[in-house]
Every structure is written in C-alpha cells, then in structure tokens.
C-alpha cells in the first residue's frame, strides 16, 4: 500500500536529518521526499511517499509523530487528496521523432521549456503515474528519440475540500 505522508516540522537545523534517520533506523523505505518552508517560516512542510501494509504505515506515522520537532503528520492517501509531481526530461529527438516527441508532450499537456537542434527539454506536472506514462511514451519512439536525463521533484500534495494540515 502506498502512503503519502504530509509532515509539518519545525524549520530548524537537524530536523530533516531526524526524519530521514528514523526511516533508516527502523528499516522503513522512502520513495520520494520533498521539503520546503511554508508561508510560516518557522515551519517546513515535508511530503514523503512510502509503502507498506496498514500496520507499518501506522507505525511510521506514530514514530514520526514521536519526533520532538514534528508538529503534525497525516497520510494523504487515507482520504481524497490532490497530488502533483514535477518532471523535467531532456530528450534527444531527431528526424521524424522530433514531431512525435512534441506531439506526446502536447497530449500529456507538457511544456517544452528548452530546445536545441537535436534536443527538447519537457516540463510536465501531474500525479506520479502520469509522469511514468509520459516517460514510457517518449521511450517508445525508437532510436530517433532517446531520454538523456530525467529529474523529478517527488510528490507534493494536499487533502481535498476543507481538510487542512495545520500546526
């Protein structure tokens, strides 16, 4: 089972290392991790994806909550939520594939943010599966289109409706 954990954390030196250390120490895995200060600069918001059965996810949440610097933590997947991830992909595209890559980017509502005579850099935002699908679609264009570099931001998310994660 996949979980997206949203964590509000004191914006203090060393706080992030405690979160990461906890995962290593208790043999939990981190699939993606993204963190930045919030509108309140004393707080950072961290979004982390992991997986495991319900018991394991519950333990992870409890142990996160036990860290002194963690203010609050929820599993976004437990209810309706919005999740987004940013992808930048640099593709070498020549010949017929040049049109094909551009078309795929349009279909996925990606934007071409940089271009050279033989490459495109495409930016795409969406749920992680959409990003996976785009990467595999580009890869299907034969030898004329090759993925040179991929960077993904990791998942960020929020609960739908009135649900708010606050201190």
């Amino acid at each position: 089972m996949r979980a997206i954990l949203a964590v509000l954390l004191e914006n203090e030196a060393g706080a992030l290392s405690r979160v990461v250390g906890l995962f290593a120490q208790r043999n939990y895995n981190i699939e993606t991790l993204t963190v930045a200060p919030t509108e309140d600069h004393t707080l950072s918001r961290l979004t982390l994806t992991t997986s495991g059965d319900q018991d394991r996810i519950t333990q992870i949440i409890k142990h996160l909550d036990r860290l002194v610097e963690v203010v609050s933590v929820i599993n976004l997947c437990a209810e309706e939520h919005v999740e987004r991830e940013l992808l930048l992909v640099k593709v070498r595209a020549v010949g017929d594939a040049r049109q094909e890559v551009k078309r795929s980017a349009d279909v996925f509502r990606g934007q071409i943010v940089d271009v050279t005579s033989d490459t495109y850099t495409v930016q795409l935002v969406g749920p992680s599966q959409k990003l996976d699908a785009f990467i595999s679609a580009i890869g299907d264009n034969g030898e004329e289109a090759t993925i040179l570099e991929v960077v993904r931001s990791g998942v960020s998310g929020m609960g739908r409706g009135n649900r708010v994660l606050s201190a």
Binding site: T58, Q59, K62, H63, D65, R66
Partner: peptide, 8 residues
C-alpha cells in the same frame, strides 16, 4: 504512554 508502543 508511548502511542508507538501500542500495536507494535
């Protein structure tokens, strides 16, 4: 006293 001990 430690919720993390429960059901561990």
């Amino acid at each position: 006293i430690d919720p993390a001990s429960i059901d561990k």
